[in-house]
Design a binder for these strands. Structure first.
Lengths: 257, 257
DNA sequence: ATGCATTTGTTCGTATGTATC
DNA sequence: AGATACATACGAACAAATGCA
């Protein structure tokens, strides 16, 4: 060590990554606003001094990242899109599908997210939010006799309305993603259940109580309702050894003593 | 409408997307476990019946998504990676740079995650976890005089140890991702700060109190400590209008009355 | 430790269907 | 409706890098 400087290992950065980087930076800097069009692929290969394939690989990456939309034969070039949380949802969903992830972890996570969403929603909701939640609840009630899939859609709409009232994009996409994973994990259990209407009625009553708590701006009760009902729904589905891990989140105050 | 069936518009799905879809599904199904290798690009173009360029575009997308790692000249083929929160961090970072996502939302989300992680850790920690946290804390203390970057690494190690004690992969990666975003946002603020050592000392004291609460298995106190310290750190950084949104999460019990 | 076979990174040329003017 | 420019997709080729005998 003749010098005091510390060197870091350099990883070979490929050509297409440099192209992605430059375009992404331009978008993030606001140099390329949503709706703007990129030059044609041939122009780009001239500007970046790389081959057509390299440009295309970069465009595919940016397209799959949700920053661009490319259409075949569009003389205007690729369109810059407004950044959306769709990729965040995909990342979260992927993360939750990873093997070795057990149901208890997903349910735990959902207990945290739903409770926080309800807490925030109770504190920050407006009248518009309340009417949206009520509408979703009415749809749920109407769909009990229709079928579980329709009921499930209305259920998702209710949770979405709550997350919207909470006013946090991360909570919103998190709730959406984790809910999708959970229902995916127990879908066949529901399909095999003898008395689906009873399950839906039970779910309906719980959602009504949540809405009531949010309407009365009772955040802690809304949060606790989320934790309790999720525990009640899924405690039987997890192994005995894991049930304690769910209970650890159930009522924080209990553990204070 | 001669038929009762309802048709949906089909969007032209490109060849590389089909390839991405198939490989991604195989990984998510667990058919391709981390560490497994993909066939060579020439084999893949044979199996998918597409050209090499198409295969490469798909591989680039999967690589940028963090599912694969490709190396030039590797006869073993692309390696399937373990899902990491890096892409989640990137998505969140992008979302924030476009001001669709504000600092208040990220701090809110971190308050939720850190509080829950501390709560679970206090309830479920073992002696091994405690020694790991203590070791990270000692490293933080030793690095106060060294520099902020080293201190920050030890800080991350502490939070990682707490998340590990919580025993939930989703919490772990979530904490890591959101922490990365937050420190990235206020990095220059720290760099410009007059008295970095004072900030580090303050942070050190806070972490020591958290460890104490976790050691005593006082979950609610550990959770509240996380919320309070994050609020104290970042309340000044958010606009006045947003501060109320942070306070809504600060002490849930207060809002009960 | 050396060389060899294989693979990836990159480039170029070409044919085909498509969107815009 | 036609012409033009474009993206999609294919295939071949060369250099650099890797793993294995």
């Amino acid at each position: 060590m003749a010098t005091g400087a510390s060197f870091e290992p350099v990883r070979a950065v490929r050509a297409y990554e440099r192209v992605v980087e430059q375009i992404e930076d331009a978008v993030l800097r606001g140099d390329l606003k949503p709706g703007a069009r990129l030059p044609s692929e041939r122009d780009l290969m001239g500007q970046f001094r790389v081959s057509r394939s390299t440009v295309r690989e970069a465009l595919r990456v940016l397209e799959s990242g949700g920053l661009l939309r490319c259409r075949p034969g569009d003389p205007l070039g690729a369109e810059v899109l407004t950044i959306s949380p769709s990729t965040l949802t995909r990342s979260m969903t992927r993360l939750m599908h990873v093997d070795g992830l057990r149901l208890v972890e997903v349910v735990q996570f959902r207990m945290m997210l739903d409770a926080s969403a309800n807490l925030l929603a109770a504190r920050l909701r407006t009248e518009e939010h309340l009417t949206a939640m009520q509408a979703a609840l009415d749809t749920m009630a109407a769909n009990v006799s229709v079928g579980y899939t329709q009921f499930s859609f209305a259920d998702a709409a209710f949770h979405d309305a709550v997350a919207a009232a909470a006013g946090n994009t991360l909570v919103q996409v998190g709730v959406e993603a984790v809910r999708g994973v959970v229902v995916g994990l127990i879908a066949k259990k529901i399909a095999l259940a003898k008395d689906q209407p009873a399950l839906m009625e039970k779910s309906l009553r719980h959602h009504a109580r949540v809405l009531e708590a949010i309407r009365e701006q009772d955040g802690p009760r809304a949060a606790q309702l989320a934790r309790e009902s999720l525990f009640a729904y899924y405690a039987d589905e997890v192994p005995d050894a894991d049930r304690e891990r769910l209970r650890a989140l159930l009522d924080p105050v209990q553990h204070a003593v």
